[in-house]
């Protein structure tokens, strides 16, 4: 059973009562409780395809979103995110409920997932092989990732490349993709079929709107992918589309500096990152035109097939 199969009333009831809603998101089992009902309609849309795990015993994170005390329910309303009863960050304006929940989950994964090497990267798959797009903020990673996810690539993740140290495979974590500011309009024009949620204005990252992860991507979230390509994208206004090879040593340094826990994992981090780079074709991509970029990346996949 998926979240989308629950009626509005049933979802509201489960998420408010004990023990809460047990949902699987990629490799993680999340227990969710909501003390405020504002995020529910969007949650139902964005988390539509996640399977429910009603008999889950062991959950990875127990998260909740509540009013920040009785006073802040009415006066300048604030909401508070907690994981296992602790708030990892300051309460935010209650109007930013859904982005806060998503950021909170990012925090959980980044702080708790040290059994995996975690890169700050988008990951997509074609023909069983993963395209990893590590990206500094502003490099256009989310935009490119959303575009690819609507042009024949399977979305694994927009934020985390989860690499298994043992086999080097990439684990899917398909989540709503937060588009920021200008990219919202770009994707609306580029992929009208993409389901985009309401825009939240005035968040710490500006205006944010979420794209629902494609149902097929969520349905296949238990299928890992083997490393295929490491492409470091850079969006630049007016730039020609250029896909250029990158040396493995440069790629390694970029991967290490783009990871959430490369340093923390020590030797395991080094070996896992090195193997990943060895198995990938490494490139840089500068682009301004999404269609052209997608053609070039598609050619990579076809050449390998």
């Amino acid at each position: 059973m998926r979240i989308g199969d629950l009626s509005d009333g049933e979802l509201a009831r489960q998420v408010r009562a004990r023990p809460g809603l047990d949902v699987r998101i990629g490799p993680f089992l999340v227990n969710l409780r909501l003390g405020l009902c504002e995020p529910l309609p969007l949650l139902q849309r964005m988390w539509h395809d996640y399977p429910l795990e009603p008999s889950a015993g062991i959950r990875d994170f127990h998260v909740s979103l509540d009013h920040n005390g009785w006073l802040r329910r009415w006066w300048r309303p604030q909401a508070r995110f907690t994981v296992d009863g602790r708030s990892p960050f300051q309460p935010l304006a209650a109007a930013h409920h859904f982005p806060m929940l998503e950021w909170g989950l990012n925090w959980c994964v980044a702080r708790r997932g040290h059994h995996l090497l975690m890169l700050h990267a988008a990951v997509l798959e074609r023909g069983g092989r993963a395209l990893i797009l590590p990206g500094a903020p502003g490099a256009g990673k989310s935009t490119l990732c959303t575009a690819l996810a609507h042009r024949g690539w399977r979305l694994l993740s927009d934020e985390f490349a989860l690499v298994c140290p043992q086999y080097g495979r990439l684990l899917p974590l398909p989540r709503p993709i937060p588009l920021k500011n200008g990219s919202i309009g770009v994707i609306r024009d580029f992929a009208p079929e993409a389901e985009i949620g309401p825009a939240f204005t005035g968040t710490r990252k500006g205006t944010v709107a979420h794209v629902r992860p494609p149902s097929a991507a969520v349905a296949r979230m238990d299928e890992p992918a083997t490393p295929g390509w490491l492409v470091f994208p850079r969006w630049q206004a007016g730039a020609d589309t250029q896909l250029e090879p990158l040396s493995r040593s440069d790629a390694f340094l970029l991967v290490a500096s783009n990871a959430f826990n490369y340093e923390l994992l020590g030797e395991t981090g080094f070996i896992t990152a090195a193997r990943l780079v060895e198995r990938c074709g490494c490139h840089t991509l500068s682009y301004s035109n999404l269609d052209e970029a997608i053609v070039r990346l598609g050619a990579l996949a076809e050449a390998a097939a």
Binding site: L29, D60, R112, G113, H114, L264, T268
Partner: peptide, 21 residues
């Protein structure tokens, strides 16, 4: 012990080793 538990234990092991280092 269950696999999901092992992930958390492994994660804690890595964190401890990191802090000690």
């Amino acid at each position: 012990v269950p696999e999901r538990v092992c992930h958390h234990l492994e994660s804690a092991r890595q964190q401890v080793a990191y802090r000690q280092r």
